[in-house]
Design a protein around this nucleic acid. Structure first.
Lengths: 234, 234
DNA sequence: GCTTGTACGCTAGTATACAAGTTTGTTGAC
DNA sequence: GTCAACAAACTTGTATACTAGCGTACAAGC
């Protein structure tokens, strides 16, 4: 692979600018179509244009920004086709790795999975969405690590960002968290039972239900989206 | 996704520097561990450091270069774990898309696939490895397009680069091309028959045999490789 | 001879100045 | 009033100067 960003050393400033902007875009603080200026960003962050340019370039590679030469830099619209493609890639990879995880699971790893579930349960009880999704990510990452393909998680993270961008448009209800948690329990239960077929089916159902929710969010926030495929002439 | 590099506008100079270096690394003209200097590269290409830096940063993201701050930029070693991960991702995605292609194939698309095969047959007859692999790539890309996930090909291209880097270490024999061609014929034949299971099996066998060859190349060129996983401290 | 301190040259990171191009607002003529 | 031409204020792209840190060579001291 080396999966994106996995092998890159960055200075602390570049890191800060990149992470801050990325977070702002994912959270929706910066809205699709909104214009950015490298000069203003540089002043805002208290650095020169060079590290800002590096961050902008990277975000452009990630698909979060669109740089138009001599015109400006804009927050990229959310392309529904790209979101669907991300879902496809994630589902394909995670449904394969969960099978491997089910076949390879050892007791130590199993208890680690239980700890993730416990953390999620606490987050559900506290209705703490941020904590829940942190434990959610950690569990998915661990499953892929158990499958023996830790680097694949980096790729998942990349494509997942497109999905998260839509997800962040809506607030999660307690009911929603509880439903996701139940799905996670089934996945872990089937994995612990070394039932590759069952684990894959549970994972697929889980990812699909998340995607369906994303689709519903998209339907009610169409102003943020652009469903035309990439313009080949740009 | 937006899959890597798909949405980026680059000036012609950046493009040239990036493509030239990437090609040189893939071809082995630049060997793993070899040091590069942004200043020297800038002089070499007749541009300033800024566009060179952009190209270097991108190549670093791709995993082809390793930038050590205040020390230097080096051609990244080929990590065998990364190659194996690339194989895993490619196999997982293409085995899924070939099923979809088999289910969706229409007559126009079928004849396009036949043209790819014909081009490959001519390349085999002429023992023209470059032409063969061009037609090879076009066929794989078309299959993914037929599956309805054209953007996934960009991702495949990214991970495939790691595999190609190893493949380029060895010259392809006529026998080898003929064997690959036969595998392609089976894949297309099963796809045309709308036999998703058969097409997937053929694709998996094909990709595995390519990977086995890559493994053999690696075994006889160990001086180029580094099989330690990424150093988490770097 | 070996170790250690130091100075020099290299690197990438950063800041800034300039060039090229687009958009936009204004101003003038019709 | 409308439209065209022009100019000013933006934008990113590029080039260059400077900073900070690392590595090495070399010399001084033990």
């Amino acid at each position: 692979m080396p999966l994106p960003h996995s092998a890159t050393a960055r200075g602390p400033r570049q890191h800060d600018v990149y992470d801050t902007l990325r977070h702002a875009i994912l959270n929706g603080d910066l809205r699709p179509g909104e214009g950015l200026s490298e000069t203003k960003l540089a002043a805002q962050f208290g650095v020169s244009r060079t590290p800002v340019r590096d961050a902008v370039r990277r975000l452009s590679d990630d698909g979060f920004l669109r740089v138009v030469p001599q015109v400006g830099t804009f927050v990229a619209p959310i392309q529904l086709t790209a979101v669907a493609d991300s879902q496809f890639v994630r589902e394909t990879l995670e449904c394969r790795t969960i099978r491997l995880a089910a076949e390879r699971l050892d007791p130590v790893q199993a208890s680690a999975l239980d700890r993730h579930l416990a953390a999620q349960e606490r987050a559900v009880a506290a209705n703490d969405a941020a904590a829940f999704f942190a434990a959610d990510e950690a569990m998915h990452a661990d499953l892929i690590r158990i499958a023996g393909r830790p680097a694949v998680w980096n790729l998942i993270l990349d494509v997942k960002a497109q999905l998260d961008r839509v997800r962040c448009l809506s607030l999660e209800s307690a009911d929603w968290l509880a439903m996701i948690f139940d799905q996670h329990r089934v996945i872990i239960e089937r994995t612990r039972a070394r039932d590759a077929d069952g684990a894959e089916a549970a994972m697929r159902a889980h990812l699909r239900s998340v995607f369906d929710a994303i689709d519903r969010i998209a339907a009610t926030n169409q102003e943020y989206f652009e469903d035309t495929p990439a313009d080949p002439a740009r």
